[in-house]
Amino acid sequence: MRLMSSAKTERLVNLTMALLGTKRYMTKSEIFRRVSGYSGSGETKERMFERDKDDLRTLGIEIEVASHDPLFEDEVGYRIRPELFQLREKFDSEELGLVSLALGLIADSEFVDTTYSLNRRINSLAVSPLTPEEFRLSEINVVENGLSELLEALSERKTVTFSYQKEGASKSENRRVNSLGLSAWRGSWYLVGEDLDRDDVRVFKLSRISSRIETSSSSNSYVIPADFSIKDYLVMLKPGEYSVKVRVRRALALNLRNMPGSITQLDDDWDLLHIDFKDQEQALREILWLGPDAVVEEPAELRSAVVARLEKLVRNHG
């Protein structure tokens, strides 16, 4: 005697194949009559089918429901659309190789099962992936906690709720957000989304989300504008308001030179940059990083802050 679970597995495969193979919607009675594995009383079969249908949907298989006869609206039918179930889009070997290579970057994370499944399916196409062998990618951290929930919410346009501790705030607040985009910047992930309670588009740093991310059940609850570009919303890519004059050695300090602002040549060794930082904190960090290659000219308060920190560095490292 086969185990119950084997019988159920077999029935789920048969049901999938039958619904995939049918051109017209199959009614429940047709399913019970023709698909192998449905037995028992009418009520038992009904229950079996309802559970099977839920199981397949949980696995991501879309089952369409419709009434195929307008005169008998009660008799609904079911089918699986082949174009939604099967991968019919064409990719060449090189494209598939690049996808495999990219998946390798996230394989060692909470996405391990998904990457296994995706790689398996890529290897199940008539065209085989051709990986550019010469590359060994350095290991960088691509994923971060919360990314998985947010990707799901974003892909299905579901509202998310979480508690968030703003920089400098002493406690977290609840947020309801319609996600618009995600961006990694210097090793951290940021969510840009419409904050429903504040009625404004806000940026959230994933590492500052202090609770589980809850996803609403209804999908397509909002629309992302087609011309949305996350770069327009990330503050670190926008000019700041803290104006600084800083002297930097010529041909150095590329980070600062790339910021919006003006550059004047002072002499053979030094250039004067006039740039805007987000705040004093950012200015301090960027300038201290450059060590003897950058000297603050204005404002005076930043100049003394830099000196104070340099003195502390000498004291505690000397």
Binding site: G60, I61, L84, F85, Q86, L87, R88, E89, V99, A102, L103, L105, I106, F111, T114, S117, L118, R120, R121, I122, S124, L125, V142, V143, L147, L151, E152, L154, S155, E156, L182
Partner: peptide, 16 residues
């Protein structure tokens, strides 16, 4: 043919 990528899976591929 293999199963099609879901929207979430495709978005993950885009991130990668």
């Amino acid at each position: 043919s293999p199963r099609r990528f879901s929207q979430t899976e495709a978005l993950l591929i885009r991130v990668a």
